[in-house]
Nucleic acid binder design. Structure first.
Lengths: 230, 230
DNA sequence: CTCTTATTGTAACATATGTTACTGTAGCCT
DNA sequence: AGGCTACAGTAACATATGTTACAATAAGAG
């Protein structure tokens, strides 16, 4: 499955009479950041809008800016040397990517892939500012540390899921999480795509999905799954 | 297997003519921290020495100080609701525990268990100072961020191991990692203990160990395993 | 419409891992 | 020595997951 890696970027900075970014900032991050910081972000940040399916970061990429999500969702994936994939977690409004921060600050290659799960809007912050703000803005320090904490907890949850749950339970959790992310009981996907995300085979997923349908928990259709009671 | 949770703590602070802690600090963290910070750590830090096997943190504990490891090793474990265990990673000299930092700063319960793998020496930092130093010491900020990055990468490696490797490969990696941590080709442990760490059953471990022995990679003995060629 | 492709369902089988049960023995205590 | 316990070896079987192969059909392209 080939997805376009094209990304639409709109620059709003330095335009005198049109500041949607400032608006978005205040709406989504006003309660987190002090005014001075909001101002700085507005100065150096770049507004970016990407359609569902676009690849934002590939494994091995050098990353030079970190995102502040405004809306939408981003799927973070891991891949091993054989190309086998595994879904790690999703990012949503108010999130940033701790993995990206570590890449930025350590000037390392990305260890993960990031793909827009829905149409997504975000503000990109250049890496140099991150460090500067760490020294100057208490709210930025808190935000960064809090982001690390959230991400560590997501990783822990991922480990729990893989280590302690059987595939049928992982599948149920996957469907629940996905429905929550897209805020819809109808999940548009294929059995093959789920198999990639959970790192198993399509036949296994079809088998388990059919079992869930027989238990009345979901209803299967071509290219989408309707959640009844999970 | 019941282990003593007793912990030996020696306090060296505020003693005028005996400062082993300052020595240890300079030896192990002098290249990382500026003088002023070393001094502060020496003022408020507590030297702590624990024997192998002692439990430092239990899941659900509230943690009010973070460790800077001087020597030894600490095993970080996860446990699910049924009491099934899983080894996450080890901490060594120069490390601190990012999970602990997040607990301290967020005032959350610990999500993990920490057990001394060897006799271990460390300096404990009270949580209040952590935040203060974040604002005042550039080297402390770098250290904290770097610790988060290391821990995220350890977690990623753990996920890779569980998700992409079969049990025999996980076992080999486990033996290699363990030998490296204790710096000895003879690993003192039982099949049952390995089974707990890898979250599988003793019989499975015995079976796979026997296979490794037949391949000439290890030599099995009662209560210890000698690594030949892994 | 016809042809093609992607998607799904399903059977049959292979393999990895988990479970139960039993044995032997080293090490320790008395 | 005798007895106890933890540890290890192994067989036989159960289950979960992975693999291969093939059929049925919906959706889209022409």
């Amino acid at each position: 499955m080939e997805l376009s890696t094209e990304v639409l970027t709109f620059e709003f900075r330095n335009e005198s009479n049109f500041h949607p970014m400032l608006n978005e900032l205040q709406r989504n991050y006003g309660h987190l950041f002090e005014d001075g910081l909001i101002n700085e972000i507005n100065q150096v940040g770049t507004y970016k809008e990407v359609p569902a399916g676009s690849k934002l970061i590939e494994i091995g990429d050098y990353v030079k800016s970190m995102p502040l999500l405004i809306s939408g969702a981003i799927k973070i994936m891991r891949e091993d040397s054989e190309g086998d994939e595994l879904l790690l977690y999703f990012l949503e409004r108010g999130d940033t990517c701790a993995m990206t921060m570590t890449c930025c600050m350590g000037h390392h290659k990305s260890e993960v892939r990031a793909v827009a799960e829905k149409d997504t809007r975000m503000i990109m912050i250049p890496v140099q500012k991150m460090e500067e703000w760490m020294a100057n803005f208490h709210t930025w320090r808190s935000f960064v540390l809090n982001s690390y904490q959230l991400r560590l907890n997501e990783m822990l949850e991922t480990i729990d899921t893989i280590a302690f749950l059987k595939m049928d339970e992982r599948l149920m959790k996957y469907l629940r999480d996905k429905a929550k992310i897209i805020q819809d009981d109808c999940i548009e996907t294929t059995h093959q795509q789920i198999a990639y995300d959970l790192h198993t085979s399509r036949v296994v997923i079809s088998r388990l999905l059919k079992a869930l349908e027989n238990e009345g928990k979901i209803k299967l259709h071509r290219n989408y799954i309707k959640i009844i009671d999970l």
